[in-house]
Write a protein that binds this DNA or RNA. Structure first.
Length: 106
DNA sequence: GAGGTGACGTCGT
DNA sequence: GACGACGCCACCT
């Protein structure tokens, strides 16, 4: 079980209409670095694994990973379709939509 | 083996 | 509060 497989597991557990941060996942999995999460998601993208990576944002709620999705607004569109308001590549009421893995997963 | 890179985060100015 | 520098650690030259 590679660490990025566990990252995929966590991301798949994010409920509809919720978002989480790289840091929260890194802390939950004790990766030691939030960059690992982003890198794992990048791998998932390259590996063709379908996970809701659009629900993972940085600590400010910014869609920093949008450049890795096809198109410019793909990430924002998917979030809006889930009832999450996105303005200027940033999740509105980010803390209200925030979902912490450590508080919901074992 | 050394150096550079990256979907980040924290601390110091 | 905004910006820059550093730390982080797996992976790729």
């Amino acid at each position: 079980m590679n660490y990025y497989d566990r990252v995929f597991e966590v991301v798949e557990q994010i409920p509809f209409g919720k978002v989480t941060t790289y840091g929260a996942i890194a802390d939950f999995l004790a990766l030691g670095s939030a960059r690992m999460v982003g890198w794992a998601l990048n791998q998932s993208h390259l590996m063709g694994i379908d996970i809701p990576a659009h629900r993972v944002v940085n600590r400010k709620g910014e869609l920093t990973g949008r450049n890795h999705f096809p198109g410019d607004q793909t990430m924002a569109k998917r979030l809006r379709s889930e009832g999450i308001e996105v303005t200027d590549d940033t999740v509105v009421n980010f803390e209200g939509h925030l979902w912490i893995p450590a508080e919901h997963l074992l």
